[in-house]
Amino acid sequence: MTIAAEQEMPRSKRRSSLIRSPQFSSLVILIVLLAVFAIADANFLSPLNISNMMAFLPELGIIALGMTLLLTAGEFDLSVGAVFGLAPVVVMLLVQNGGFDIGIALLAGLLLCIAIGAVNGLIVTKIGISSFLVTLSMLLVVRGAALYITQGFPLKSWDQPGFFVTLLAGSFNIGTFRFYTSLWWFIGLSLLAIYVLHYAKLGNWISAIGSNRNAAVARGVPADAVKIWLFILTSVLAGLAGMISAFRISAASPVAGTGYELEVIAMVVVGGTALTGGRGTILGTIVGALMLRSIRNGIVLIGVPGLAYNIFVGVIILAMLILHALLQKNAARS
């Protein structure tokens, strides 16, 4: 259906719209970045290193998918990093201190994430406070809760092999590469997000709400409900990512995920989604997630001193954003 429609377009037009798309400039930057790291350190593209990157990628990437949809609808969520930390901590406390079955505990964790997202969404839409302030406060509440209920100590995570561990953090080998099941989650959820945002009726609503909320509401689009569900989705994905991480490293720390909210937003924006809403791209977010992951990995490999690490990450993100903006400006002019 879409393919047929795309074929109707003249080839030249198709090419120029491809080059103009924000995902394209992100992709170019990613390729350059990978090339630079690969040349600087031969180990960068080794199976072990790629496997390592792919183990970390889904954890932030999954949150970034939700954040992309939320940003497209014109809202932020700064509480994702804290939810990433709280969800596994609550689940493990229920199992270890409460004696609950792991399945029940996971269900409780899921309900908790839904509740956090719903509170965020309800306050933002019904009381009309900016999502920046609401979710910043929620970050403090959620992180504080994680620290308080654990008294600041990390918990040993569920490490008995079983259905849930395999489901969230199982691993498998392809040749010399070792991948985690979380990669499947990321791929599956990415496809789903691409479908929803670009091909489903809901995606049309999400973009319209972020682009011009009043116009969407005037057409009968339930803007508040859509936003509330997107806050819930983002929160649930953050919790899922937290569980995946906790199972993978067999530990649930109350400070896990600190600062993730900004890194996730950086991934989304570097990928080409507009911070102001209306324009979102899942493909761009995937490219952005790959980009941030390879920067974090690459600068360690090329020997940047540990404490200077964040300086480099910050500078590179800034440089990418500038480059991105310039490429976009250029493309728009031509």
């Binding site: 489903a200 009726k201 809901l202 609503w205 973009s207 682009s211 116009a215 009968g220 689009v221 324009r279």
Partner: peptide, 29 residues
């Protein structure tokens, strides 16, 4: 109008023609 959407998508905003109507808001345009 929503400026970031195409003319076509704006014209049918809120009344989008879809396939597989039973999918509700997840129905493909």
């Amino acid at each position: 109008l929503a400026p970031d959407l195409s003319i076509a998508r704006n014209l049918f905003l809120g009344r989008e023609p879809v396939n597989l109507k039973w999918l509700g808001v997840f129905a493909p345009l």
